[in-house]
């Protein structure tokens, strides 16, 4: 085959990649050793980062893209896809991760935003992006910018699933509500939620977002993961929940199985038995305004 007949970095390839992650668990890892544990447990991909969200909360200061050496180390350690986080709007961090060869970039509110006005113009990249969202308008604005995957934001690093539930229920509820609207009402609703009308109509027709929608931000147990799947998530991200638990290998394996059998409580009971302690949790109502991550980017 001649090289010019090949097409790279298309929308179909980006969304197709995201689609292959469905029914899977994507785990935060900070080094090669953790990445291997995640792969061994059955993770579909790992998210490489400098510190997991609960440690970012403790450390404070500006949280940035991980050291390229760390990303490289994780890429070399595993055969499953490796993702990496960049700051909202920081397109140069994204260029760096693309060159390093990460398989997907998370433009993430967990890191300190670099631009309070604009997100990254994701269509300029060959690598696919995942972005956080709390409601339908935010999800569709990100898709319009080129995101190939959405994850509901939740509240990262808390081990508390309440915000993840709120955001998944909001998005699924808004899509269900669309079905009762006619085209004019949809156009009006699109203006109200500040989203492109054609994407609103596409959601109404398909009864779901046009891209894969995972859940993130607060999942700490196999039951949490299965809860998000039953609420309609296509898969889950687990951040601090694995390596801040007392037995990461067992927690990782159990969450993978709980996602696979999310509608079978007998399996969830079995895999939840004797897991040790989940990560310590935080009551989100005790967070100061400047400690809340989900409001970054809109």
């Amino acid at each position: 085959m001649k090289l010019e007949e090949l097409r790279f970095g298309t929308e179909l390839l980006k969304r197709g990649f995201a689609s292959m992650q469905k029914g899977g668990v994507i785990m935060d890892v900070v080094n090669a050793e953790q990445a291997k544990i995640a792969e061994e447990a059955g993770a579909v991909a790992v998210m490489s980062l400098e510190r997991v969200p609960s440690d970012i909360r403790k450390t404070g200061g500006v949280a940035r893209m991980a050291d390229p050496e760390k990303v490289q180390e994780i890429i070399e350690a595993v055969s499953i896809p490796v993702m990496g986080k960049v700051r909202i709007g920081h397109f140069v961090e994204a260029q760096v991760l693309e060159v390093l060869g990460v398989d997907m970039i998370d433009e993430s509110e967990v890191l300190t935003p670099a631009d309070e006005q604009y997100h990254i113009d994701k269509k300029q990249f060959k690598v696919p992006f995942v972005c956080g969202a709390r409601d339908l308008g935010e999800a569709l604005r990100r898709i319009n910018e080129g995101a190939a995957m959405i994850r509901t934001k939740g509240e990262a690093g808390t081990g508390n699933v309440v915000e993840a539930v709120r955001h998944m229920r909001t998005i699924m509820g808004e899509i269900r509500m669309l079905r009762g609207l006619d085209k004019q009402e949809m156009a009006d609703y699109a203006r109200e939620i500040e989203a492109p009308a054609e994407l609103v109509i596409e959601c109404a027709e398909r009864g779901r977002l046009p891209v894969v929608n995972f859940s993130a931000g607060g999942i700490a147990t196999p039951s949490d993961a299965a809860l998000m799947m039953q609420l309609g998530a296509d898969g889950v991200f687990v951040g601090s929940g694995i390596f801040k638990s007392s037995s990461p290998e067992r927690m990782a394996t159990a969450i993978v199985e709980a996602v696979n059998h999310f509608d079978d409580p007998r399996v969830i009971a079995k895999v939840s038995t004797g897991l040790g302690d989940a990560m310590p949790g935080l009551d989100v109502h005790t967070l100061r305004d400047d400690e809340v991550l989900q409001t970054r980017g809109r």
Partner: peptide
């Protein structure tokens, strides 16, 4: 290779 080398072809 990795995702950036993924491609479409006839």
């Amino acid at each position: 290779g990795r995702q950036c080398e993924s491609f479409e072809i006839d």
